[in-house]
């Protein structure tokens, strides 16, 4: 038996597609040239349209289930991925589908106001599933992007610099949480081993607040660095920071500390038996 919906979809397919494309916004009418993909957005939409209609033409049942490997699911995810990368909100993809739903249900009701309730229910079910799928896909992609970005930020923010022969400089900028502390320790230890560093300057000028957890992270990093045979010079603790640390009762026992990076560098050079002099003094 053919349902009203199946009949409608078969007879008015082309019109529906045209109406739908017309109802969508400008970005789809002007495919972005820098896209680089072979599919133009419009082709994607055509494919999605065909897929959705195929799903709708299934015999109605109590539950509409969509396999994750179904072409419809795949196309939808691709479309969502494209949009998420362009920085579009989740409402854009979902609005796209809901506008198709609106078009179909409008025609359905116009054609037969009395007998369309069963078909409308089915329509509702299919689009509900599609919306859920699109939203989940959108969140997945966003989360993936965010993880990628925070990873690259993490790497950006912990450079270990070779200041001089056997002297390393680790300027710390920003808050230090568990993840960053681990990253800092790892990259520092690796650099100490590679350069056979004798002295490491740990500059804390850019650390906004020194509390017990930051202090604890730093102590662990310093201990590990010492095991590799380097001495640590801490620099750049602000007067407020120093006062707070003592109030907290935190003691960096036998760590050399200097107020400024300049003093720290002088100290570090002294430790490896060098010093900075003006050119005149150095002449024989």
């Amino acid at each position: 038996m053919t349902t009203l919906l199946q009949q409608l979809l078969r007879e008015h397919r082309a019109e529906l597609l045209a109406d739908w494309l017309k109802s969508l916004h400008a970005p789809w009418e002007h495919p972005t040239p820098q896209d680089g993909t072979h599919h133009e957005p419009n082709q994607r939409l055509h494919a999605l349209f065909e897929d959705i209609l195929t799903a709708l033409e299934r015999p109605p049942s109590d539950r509409f289930e969509l396999d994750a490997l179904d072409p419809l699911a795949k196309h939808l995810r691709q479309l969502v991925a494209d949009q998420a990368r362009r920085g579009a909100g989740s409402s854009e993809t979902i609005g796209l589908m809901l506008s198709l739903k609106r078009l179909i249900s409008k025609r359905l009701i116009e054609q037969s106001p009395s007998d369309s309730s069963g078909d409308l229910l089915w329509l509702e079910q299919v689009f509900e599933q599609l919306t859920l799928l699109a939203f989940a896909a959108f969140l997945d992609i966003r989360e993936h992007l965010i993880t990628q970005q925070s990873l690259s930020l993490l790497e950006l923010s912990t450079p270990v610099l070779r200041l001089w022969h056997r002297i390393l400089l680790l300027p710390l900028v920003g808050v230090i949480d568990t993840g960053r502390a681990r990253q800092i320790t790892e990259s520092l230890l690796e650099a100490i081993a590679r350069h056979e560093a004798r002295v490491t300057i740990l500059d804390l000028t850019g650390v906004p607040v020194l509390d017990t957890s930051v202090a604890q992270h730093l102590m662990k990093t310093i201990d590990a660095a010492r095991l590799l045979g380097t001495r640590v010079v801490m620099t750049g603790i602000s007067p407020e920071g120093a006062q707070t640390l003592t109030k907290l009762g935190i003691r960096f026992a036998d760590v050399i500390s200097r107020a400024t990076l300049r003093a720290g560098i002088a100290e570090a050079l002294l430790m490896v038996g060098q010093r900075i002099t003006s050119i005149e003094d150095g002449r024989p």
Partner: peptide
């Protein structure tokens, strides 16, 4: 921690006091 410090600075606490407040909030 950041927001407590901001509030302390808005209320015109001294730099040291604001630092103390931020650290206490963080703890």
């Amino acid at each position: 921690c950041r927001q407590a410090r901001q509030l302390a600075e808005t209320l015109r606490f001294s730099r040291t006091a604001a630092y103390h407040i931020a650290t206490a909030a963080s703890e």
